[in-house]
């Protein structure tokens, strides 16, 4: 059976990852509350996944329409940190998903993910700062 990935939030990051996973022959499901967001998927002719318009904060939507019980990995990239935190907790505690990647804009919520061993957190802001600092160091 092909690997299955659910991507929650189809902004630039979510869409780019969805395209990449589709190219790697994953079964890809992408959910976003706003159907316009799926426009980002048009950057590729290769995207063959399923798009779902719905509220990912609603468990019934996740279970009935987003295949949450069938996926091996979840990538949470909405622009709402509180929603992302909730989804990360939910995916590990309720669905026991082994690979959970969550984007957080604010590092203030990071301590609330301590002990969630399947969750890996990405802080785009911190990464940018680190990269900037690294580049500045190279110049000097």
């Amino acid at each position: 059976m092909a690997n299955r990935v659910l991507i929650i939030g189809c902004g630039r990051l979510g869409a780019a990852l969805a395209i990449r996973y589709a190219e790697q022959k994953y079964n890809v499901y992408v959910v976003d509350a706003n159907s316009d967001s799926f426009e980002y998927l048009n950057d590729s002719d290769q995207f063959s996944g399923e798009t779902i318009v719905g509220d990912a904060g609603d468990v019934e939507t996740l279970e009935a329409r987003c295949h949450i019980k069938e996926v091996d990995r979840v990538i949470i990239t909405t622009g709402d940190d509180c929603l992302n935190l909730f989804l990360a907790h939910l995916c590990e505690s309720r669905y026991h998903i082994k690979h959970i990647y969550v984007r957080l804009d604010s590092s203030e919520l990071a301590p609330l993910l301590f002990g969630y061993n399947s969750v890996q957190t990405i802080f785009p802001f911190n990464l940018s700062i680190e990269k900037y600092t690294e580049m500045e160091g190279e110049e000097e």
Binding site: G57, D80, D81, C82, L83, L85, F86, H89, E108, L109, P111, L112
Partner: peptide
């Protein structure tokens, strides 16, 4: 009026 904001606030209040 946002459920997940309330959830995150409660988690922060309890854990930290």
């Amino acid at each position: 009026n946002k459920d997940t904001d309330n959830y995150a606030a409660c988690c922060m209040a309890e854990n930290s």
